[in-house]
Design a binder for these strands. Structure first.
Lengths: 163, 163
DNA sequence: GGCTACCGGTTGACGTGTCAATAATGCTAA
DNA sequence: TTAGCATTATTGACACGTCAACCGGTAGCC
């Protein structure tokens, strides 16, 4: 299972000043990058990244429809978050909800034509923004390194969560 | 493909599938990392990272007090956001606001003793969490690379914002 | 049958963030 | 002098996220 060894690098408890500076740069910059992409998507397409994730999943789904909880686990959201978000999207006519015939108490989420059109209009500018804000900012080596860092961080988060 | 626009790497307009996969890993993992740290700080100290940023800045300020807009630019927030946040922190007794004698229409933000104590209690667990969730997840080389990636992304964001 | 336990989904309360509008005050130029 | 005008801070409306409570239904189990 997990190693019981409490040994840390150099026996330190706390990050060094350098590590702390890098941490702050890293977390602030990545969050600024996220906000920036969010606002690009908003002005380009009047969608949030949440809207985009939902529309993307539904677009790729069989019959452009999915069960609510299936959708939630597909995009990694809590059910409550999805329910709130679907309510807002439904008000804007991007999706529809209906009772699921097969599953008791199940809700089917359907992509409306307005939703499909909004997604279609959003895709190209969104991908272009990803290129401009992320891909163009880094060298090919850095992009690879970014992928490895993400993988390592994710793996570590998963280990800690499992404990 | 014809290049109608300024030349991009390989003349591409859009990210490759690999780049897109790395982008998604990167942005989702870093945001999960942020949320995780947020929730650690919350359970350890009943503070949000916003609270922590404000308390840190005030702790280090002369007289543990700062003008509101000075504070805003110091931690990189919009004034509106800060004003909302200070309202919530004031309700909880972490800070106080008073008219600033020198500057017209200026508001002085003061650290209360309760705020100073809360910050004191929060610091150690927070730094420990940064080590556990970030530093311990990466090799020393990866930490350096993360710093360089953050620097490159930040510089690129600044360039685009200036345009 | 009735009790309980879980499952899928919704709801409400609340903290958080952005945007646009609104004061309140000093500076400047007609 | 006064009519703008910028600066400083606050406010209101709204989107978003989390947490905990709730609700309706199915499934075991006595």
């Amino acid at each position: 299972m997990t190693e019981a060894t409490p040994v840390r690098r150099g026996g330190r408890q706390l990050p060094t000043a350098d590590e702390l500076r890098i941490w702050r740069d890293f977390i602030e910059t990545t969050s600024a990058l996220g906000s920036r992409l969010e606002s690009r998507l908003q002005t380009d397409s009047s969608l949030s990244t949440g809207d985009y994730a939902v529309l993307l999943a539904l677009s790729e789904a069989q019959g452009q429809a999915m069960r609510s909880s299936e959708l939630a686990s597909h995009i990694g959201w809590e059910r409550s978050r999805l329910s709130h978000h679907l309510g807002r999207m439904e008000r804007r006519g991007l999706i529809r909800r209906q009772e699921c015939a097969t599953v008791p108490r199940g809700a089917e989420v359907l992509l409306t034509t307005a939703g499909a059109e909004a997604f279609g209009r959003a895709t190209f500018p969104h991908l272009r923004a990803i290129r401009e804000l992320f891909v163009d900012a880094l060298t090919p080596d850095q992009i690879v390194a970014a992928g490895e860092i993400a993988t390592a961080l994710r793996a570590h988060l998963d280990v800690l969560r499992a404990e």
